[in-house]
């Protein structure tokens, strides 16, 4: 029996691909910003600039939370969805 999800998937066969690409791109962006923060914090901590380290830590922590939250929207593995169809 056809349901909403199945008809959606059939109408937009590239959706999983697009979603996956978007999630990975966002994750790479977040990780890139975090690397930038970490580099800045390392350099500034050596100059006893604790506030910069603290600010970058808060930013980095929020980005990590956002990354974990994004993982919720990862599409299901294909094998699993095939199994469901059966």
């Amino acid at each position: 029996m056809s349901d909403f999800r199945r008809s959606q998937n059939e109408a937009h066969p590239n959706k999983t691909n697009t979603l996956m690409l978007a999630i990975i791109m966002l994750l790479i962006l977040f990780v890139g910003i975090q690397i930038w923060f970490l580099f800045g914090a390392l350099n500034n901590a050596l100059q006893d600039n604790i506030y910069f380290a603290l600010t970058t830590f808060i930013g980095s922590f929020l980005l990590a939370l956002a990354s974990f939250w994004l993982l919720r929207y990862l599409p299901d593995p294909l094998k699993k969805s095939r199994g469901k169809r059966k």
């Binding site: 996956m20 994750l27 990780v31 380290a53 980095s60 922590f61 990590a64 990354s67």
Partner: peptide
Amino acid sequence: FAKFLGLLSGALALGNGVIV
């Protein structure tokens, strides 16, 4: 790969915390 990026993101936040 996406899960690995999530893990890396957590590790970087942790690294920043260690500096603080």
